[in-house]
Amino acid sequence: MIIKGKIHKFGDNINTDEIIPAPYLVTTDIKELGKHCMYGIDSSFITKVRESDIIVAGRNFGCGSSREHAPLAIQGCGVALVIAQSFARIFYRNCVNVGLPILISDEIYKSIKPDDVLEADLSKGEIKNITQNKIFQVSAFPSLLQEIIEAGGLMKWYLLNKFET
């Protein structure tokens, strides 16, 4: 899977209230959630983001509540990949479960400039910074998670497996 898009950079500890403020949690519609994505930190984000764009952030991205609305809002506004120095735990698992690709990289965060364009080859773990003409290698997912992501998320993985029910 190849993802190519412009980056949007955020700092450390971006929390789920910033990604999707609580007053917008009254829906489960992903397009609707997408309309308020990042509203808590940058109310104009939604006017700048384009289909297939990439969020690059610092440490502990997605901390705070367990709301799956956060990765859904990110998907809903068109963002195809999130790269951060580290992710908060529940956010990380929610991304795996809904099939939003995420990558961990210190180097990308540190070297990225506003409006850079990245091209990510997820199966190879290879990220190209097209604007700066640099290539980065990131580590692959643990096998159980890889299996879930390859299935297209946790519910699809559920259907592929036989659980004793």
Binding site: S66, I90, N94, V98, G153, L154, M155, Y158, F163, T165
Partner: peptide, 18 residues
């Protein structure tokens, strides 16, 4: 531990969690 909604759906259906 806190998890997401899809985890909850999966746990309700399978009785399990990763």
């Amino acid at each position: 531990t806190g998890v997401g909604s899809t985890d909850l759906a999966f746990a309700m259906l399978s009785g399990k969690i990763w």
